[in-house]
């Protein structure tokens, strides 16, 4: 009872990256709280899926395996989850801030009358003191999120309602296996007990999913280009540098909008959040919507011909110059010095 639950989404039948990241964070929060970490998986044909989750320190996997759950649909998923949560009374429930999690989370929170915080960038445990009533709430979930187009960061709490629900985007938390031999318990959910016929009102006619191709999120080194790179042709230099360094090419939204790079490479608030070891920002001004997606990078190099560009204030190295001169020199001296 009162444990920490993570709704584990599936991606082509395997646990989604964001769900594994949430399990990793969930494990450490559960340790702080002294409670169990429980995972909830819904889908069809999922034999053995629990074995992919236990290594993240999952104590219980609740598995709803039924053909009716094959593809995500709002109502049947909501009914199963709210039904299970009413029984299990979790204190915290986490979901990915994916198109699925952001469709499902509010529906579940509304049904349970519990608060939901969207798109958290950090989750911590802490206390909260209310002066008026002189009460201290112990061990609340601090849900830290940007709002107002990324211009403010708010810490949100849900003192009186459970579960405390939050969604988190992919790439924000780190994923780490705790122990590959960790074994928890598997519990099967009686799906038919929760689903009502009217839950099936919306029918899926067809789905076209594209396979994930470019993966800038797991790249250790990112060479990112902005509008200042000037053209799609100039992006070729960035690809050359990235491939030499074993990295990936990313882009700002202005560069994507200009057609210099595909949308799957966009870093920022409406793109991907990345935290590589090294982020080289080429001709990127450094607007908040962009930096929100990369300011956790280990080291940042800014290449910009404007000495006052905002990106410079978060960079470890500021190269004041033209992208078209600097990149070829980086390539040249890397080739000359690397072994």
């Amino acid at each position: 009872m009162n444990n920490l639950f993570v709704f584990c989404e599936l991606d082509e039948g395997r646990p989604a990256e964001v769900s594994l990241e949430l399990l990793t964070r969930g494990r450490s929060l559960a340790d702080t709280l002294g409670c169990r970490l429980e995972a909830l998986v819904l889908g069809s044909g999922l034999d053995g899926i629990e074995n992919e989750l236990f290594p993240y320190g999952v104590d219980v996997v609740h598995l709803g395996d039924d053909p009716v759950l094959e593809h995500y649909r709002t109502m049947p998923y909501t009914s199963v989850i709210t039904g299970l949560f009413k029984q299990e009374q979790p204190q915290i429930a986490l979901m990915g801030a994916t198109t699925t999690g952001r469709d499902l989370g509010p529906r579940v929170s509304s049904a349970l009358h519990s608060g939901l915080t969207a798109d958290c960038t950090s989750l911590e445990i802490g206390d909260h003191y209310v002066k008026k009533t002189d009460t201290t709430y112990k061990n609340l979930l601090y849900q830290i999120r940007p709002a107002f187009g990324g211009n403010i960061i708010a810490t949100i709490i849900n003192p009186d309602h459970r579960p405390q629900m939050a969604t988190v985007r992919e790439g924000v938390m780190k994923r780490e296996i705790i122990n590959k031999n960790y074994r928890g318990e598997l519990r099967r959910i009686d799906v038919s007990a929760f689903i009502k016929p009217e839950d099936l009102a919306v029918e899926i006619i067809e789905r076209h999913m594209e396979a994930r191709k470019v993966d800038i999120k797991s790249a250790q080194i990112i060479v990112s280009g902005g509008y200042g790179v000037g053209s799609k042709e100039n992006f070729a230099m960035l690809y050359e540098l990235a491939s030499l360094l074993g990295g990936e090419v990313a882009a700002s939204r202005a560069a994507v909008d200009a057609g210099y790079a595909g949308h799957e490479r966009q870093v920022g608030q409406t793109g991907v959040t990345v935290r590589p070891k090294l982020y080289i920002a080429c001709g990127i001004s450094g607007q908040i919507q962009h930096t929100a997606g990369m300011n956790q990078s280990g080291k940042i190099i800014a290449i910009n011909n404007d000495p006052m560009a905002p990106i410079n204030s978060i960079a470890d190295y500021v190269i004041n110059g033209d992208v078209a001169e600097v990149i070829p020199r980086l390539i040249k001296y890397y080739k000359a010095n690397a072994r």
Partner: peptide
Amino acid sequence: SPTKVKEIENVILQSKESKRLTA
């Protein structure tokens, strides 16, 4: 409202020490 705003922080980019280089 179950959710309460405990704290709001204006996003001010923290200036770190950066090294300035030329091309």
